[in-house]
Amino acid sequence: MAVEKSLRDHARDAIRDEVMKHAWSLFAEQGFEATTVEQVAASAGMSRRTFFRYFSGKDELVLERLVESGHRIADALRARPADEAAWPALRAAFQETVEVQERYADRSRPLQIMLREEPGVRSVVLERRRQWHAALCPLVAERLPSRGRTRRPDTRADAVTGSALACLEAAQEVWADHPGAQLGQLLDDAMGAVAPLS
Rank of each mutant, 00 (worst) to 15 (best):
Y104I: 05
A92L: 09
G120S: 11
A42F: 04
S108V: 02
D17K: 11
S146F: 02
D59L: 10
V194I: 15
V160N: 01
E29A: 11
R91G: 14
L90M: 14
V160S: 04
L63G: 10
A181K: 12
A82E: 12
D158C: 14
V67K: 13
E96N: 06
G148A: 11
R129D: 03
S47E: 01
D9E: 15
L115A: 12
E99C: 01
E68V: 11
G45A: 04
S108T: 10
L90I: 13
P138Q: 12
R103S: 08
Q182Y: 05
D13G: 07
E84C: 11
R72W: 00
E64A: 15
R49V: 06
R49H: 09
W132H: 13
A23C: 02
G31F: 04
D189I: 15
G180D: 10
S6F: 06
P119C: 06
H178R: 15
A86E: 02
M191L: 07
R109N: 03
A34T: 11
D106R: 01
V37K: 00
R156L: 07
D177I: 07
Q101M: 15
A2N: 11
V194L: 13
T97F: 00
H178W: 09
E99K: 00
F51T: 07
V125C: 09
G70F: 05
G31I: 07
I73H: 08
A11C: 03
L115Y: 13
T150I: 13
R152E: 14
L90T: 14
R65I: 08
P88I: 07
M191D: 03
L144E: 07
R143L: 11
E142Y: 01
G45Y: 03
A2G: 15
R149D: 06
T155V: 10
V140T: 10
